[in-house]
């Protein structure tokens, strides 16, 4: 059994990080991978910091404990940067993917994270432009795709369609997909 890749999501209650981790799981299913997607459950409060997790592997995953040392963290809300310790347990060569309006160098300075990989995308702006409101969980999946070779963009797009296809109007789903594609293209890695 290989050691699974572990991802931790940071967001605020209501921003859809649990949904994002589930969409990623669905995309991994389409890739034929093994995966887990699970939230950190506590009292559910709109706006409070929340976490969710993924494990990714090409062999069955048996471990069922929490994730303490992820290889990757994804921060969907820029106001969490500096407010919670998003680097907790992350290895020096780990990856941070963040919804952030600045450059990768700016984020490195903000987080005091000189090593590893940093991916930034202004998901809030992208969603405001395309959807007319701030939706951060789907666009960030586009940026994540850039540094997660286990999953291809088209499978993430399919997973988003499957997640929202029945709940949202076709044009809204299309706009969500457009956000995701734009985030994929605009993401800066540094």
């Amino acid at each position: 059994m290989e050691k699974p890749l572990e991802i931790r999501w940071h967001g605020r209650g209501g921003q859809g990080v649990v949904t994002a981790s589930r969409i990623l799981a669905d995309a991994l299913l389409r890739e034929g991978k093994y995966f887990q997607a699970f939230p950190e459950y506590g009292p559910e409060r709109m706006g409070a910091p929340v976490k969710a997790y993924n494990r990714v592997s090409s062999t069955p995953i048996r471990i069922h404990s929490g994730v303490t040392n992820p290889e990757m963290v994804v921060v969907v809300d820029p106001t969490l940067l500096g407010a919670v310790d998003v680097l907790e347990g992350l290895a020096e060569n780990g990856t941070v993917v963040a919804n952030f309006p600045g450059t990768p160098a700016d984020l490195r300075n903000l987080l005091h994270f000189p090593s590893g990989t940093v991916v930034v995308v202004d998901a809030s702006r992208i969603s405001r432009e395309i959807l007319g409101r701030v939706v951060v969980n789907t666009p960030i999946l586009g940026a994540l795709c850039r540094v997660l070779p286990e999953v291809k963009l088209e499978n993430v797009l399919e997973a988003v369609k499957a997640q929202f296809g029945e709940k949202l109007r076709a044009e809204v789903v299309e706009k969500n997909l457009a956000c995701l594609r734009r985030a994929y293209e605009e993401a800066q890695i540094g």
Binding site: R22, A25, L29, F35, A37, F38, P60, I61, H64
Partner: peptide, 12 residues
Amino acid sequence: QDGFIISHAVER
């Protein structure tokens, strides 16, 4: 099944 650990974790 174990609460949250299994009941709320998505797997294959």
